Simulated assay, not measured.
Amino acid sequence: MAINFNNALGIHAEALNVRSRRSEILANNLANSDTPGFKARDLDFQGILRGEYESRQRMELNRTSARHIPAEAIIEDSSLQYRIPHQPAIDGNTVETNIEQAEFARNAMDFQSSFTFLNSRFSGLSKALRDQG
C-alpha cells in the first residue's frame, strides 16, 4: 500500500512554511520599531492556507541569455497586509512593540505545535514502514 504524504501530513507541512515566513515578517517589524514612517505588516495566515493567494498575478522575467534560469515575479503579494495600529507614533511608524512581541510568541508556539505534530506523524510513518519490512 502506497503512502500519500499529503494525506498523512495534512496542512501542517505548508503551515510550517507560512509560520516561518511570518516569523521573518514579525522580526522585521520589531527591528524597524524605531524607523520613522515604517509600516508594520503581517500575513493573512488563514487566507494563505485556504489557497486564496495562489492566483496572484505573475509576470515572467526577461532573460538576456538562454543559459539564465527562467523566473517569475509576483506583481502583488496580497497575502502581506499592513497592520492597522491602535496607537500610531507621531513619526508615522505603525509598529507597536508589545503587539508584535505577542504575535511573534504566538507564531512561535503555533510553529512548534505544527512541528511536534509533523514529528509524531513521521515517527508513526517510520514505525509503519519498519513493521512492514
Rank of each mutant, 00 (worst) to 15 (best):
E24A: 11
D44H: 05
A13W: 01
N62P: 14
K39L: 03
I74T: 14
L80T: 14
R22Y: 03
T35M: 03
P36K: 06
V18L: 04
I74K: 06
N7M: 11
Q81M: 11
E76Q: 15
R58T: 15
K39Q: 09
I11G: 04
H68M: 13
N32D: 08
R50N: 14
A8S: 10
N28V: 03
N62A: 13
E54R: 13
I74W: 03
R50S: 10
T35N: 07
D42N: 15
R58W: 11
A31R: 07
G47K: 05
R83L: 13
L43K: 10
A27N: 05
S33E: 12
D42V: 08
R50Q: 14
A71E: 12
E14I: 08
E52Q: 15
I84T: 13
M59F: 12
R83P: 00
I69W: 01
F45Q: 07
H86I: 09
H12F: 06
A31T: 07
N17I: 09
E60H: 10
P88H: 05
E24C: 01
P70R: 07
F45N: 10
S33P: 03
K39D: 00
N29H: 00
G37N: 05
T64R: 13
R50M: 12
I25D: 00
A71G: 07
G47H: 00
H12L: 01
